[in-house]
Design a protein around this nucleic acid. Structure first.
Lengths: 238, 238
DNA sequence: CTATTATACCGACCGACGGTCTATTATTCA
DNA sequence: TGAATAATAGACCGTCGGTCGGTATAATAG
């Protein structure tokens, strides 16, 4: 095999890219290291030069994922003069829109990330994302409590519930997608929209807000993701 | 090796027992099939006579776990003349007491079941338990909605939240246990009690009940589990 | 009480896996 | 230019889950 030497950081990112693709499509366990290095066109020695183990590769992947997600919401956090509720809703909207704006991509992600195969990968990403997001949420909630917008005795707890609901929403969507009986798609969509409404009202009441204050997603949010697969687009090639 | 023939169901249960012990202590991935069969004193052929795969063993384990847990709450479901709130609280109390009554055992379970190693095992048990418990919760909530005790437009959603909170409680306890800085144990216990209170109030408000209606655990619940490890008892054998 | 079939069990063996190791080629810098 | 280091290759290793041909025991029929 011809020896190709690349810029180290480039090679590392390349490995992460191929690993991510394979882990998502086949699952962490089922995608072997040999698959990864074959896909990346790299020898084992090269791989182990960059990562200490397959486990470390997973960790790096989760970290990158969380880092990218965090970068997407930084501007909202730094936006001055927003009241806590607006900030919280903005954060929710941002993370929602990041998925909606490329709806079919979002669908693909849901379909793959929440498969049983991807339990390990999902858990790692979830962990990394939680570690990144929770402090931000806590900070916002604390500010809200201080200025009287929110009412709670356990900001960390509320932040956790927020994350739980976010994950649960995705989980429920993913389950409906994989179940995928096209016949009762409408029923599934309605059930999911209802679930989102429930989460919103629950959060309103937990935080002592009037019903309708928190907005996880406007009506149609679920439908947008769920119907994204109907138009697989003409571009099925790489 | 001498050939020992046992009653099939006994052998099967035995395999499940040894597998459970090993999966809990070492984790599903790290406990190899050879470990399991060695522990059970059985050949590979014997094992594959009872289970189609290691995966199937895990499935059977989760199923047994869920079945046992369900059996523990049947009497409350069948108790006549209880109003929905009492029934719901009874169910929560039952599942709590099942863990408290052997507090050190509960602690051991927490310590093992929620370790990262046990992600796979935990997920399977969780799945099986959810499948068993959710319908019961939904039924109770529906009854409550019909007779006006509860107010919600999404009983399934509320049931899901109940399960989420239950799991989250365990998860938080387990994290505090494994973190295990004895110094700030008191702080951790207080934080956890606060979390349980938050979940209770959240559920009250989601269901349109006065604060203090839902009781996940009486004050001291968390402390009882958390301090159980202080008395490892004299019996360390077996 | 046999003969025969079905069940429970054994353990050598297999391919694939994650990971290690030595060798070799490129890059860097004095 | 040449020595040191970084980057890459690929043969090799122990262990894993799983298979297979076979054997001992139990169940059943004649």
């Amino acid at each position: 095999m011809p020896r190709i030497i690349k810029h180290p950081e480039l090679r590392r990112e390349e490995l992460l890219d191929h690993a991510q693709a394979l882990f998502l499509t086949r699952g962490y366990d089922k995608a072997s290291l040999n698959d990864v290095i074959a896909s990346a066109g790299v020898s084992k020695g090269a791989f182990y030069h960059y990562f200490a183990s397959k486990e470390a590769l997973l960790e790096a992947l989760a970290e990158r994922f969380a880092r990218q997600a965090l970068a997407g919401v930084q501007n909202i956090l730094n936006a001055p003069g927003l009241d806590p509720l607006a900030r919280l809703n903005g954060l929710l909207a941002q993370s929602r829109q990041a998925k909606i704006e490329t709806a079919s991509e979002a669908w693909a992600l849901f379909e793959t990330l929440f498969r049983p195969d991807n339990l390990v990968l999902f858990h790692r990403i979830n962990l990394a994302a939680s570690a990144s997001f929770s402090p931000l949420l806590v900070k916002i909630i604390r500010e809200g409590v201080e200025d009287g917008t929110f009412k709670t005795f356990d900001p960390e707890g509320v932040a956790d519930i927020l994350m739980q609901f976010g994950m649960a929403t995705h989980d429920v969507i993913a389950k409906a997608i994989t179940a995928g009986g096209d016949a009762d798609m409408e029923v599934a969509i309605e059930a999911l929209e209802r679930r989102v409404r429930l989460y919103e009202i629950a959060l309103d009441r937990i935080l002592g807000l009037p019903d309708g204050s928190i907005r996880i997603g406007e009506p149609g949010y679920v439908r947008a993701v769920m119907t994204a697969r109907r138009k697989p687009k003409a571009d099925e090639a790489r």
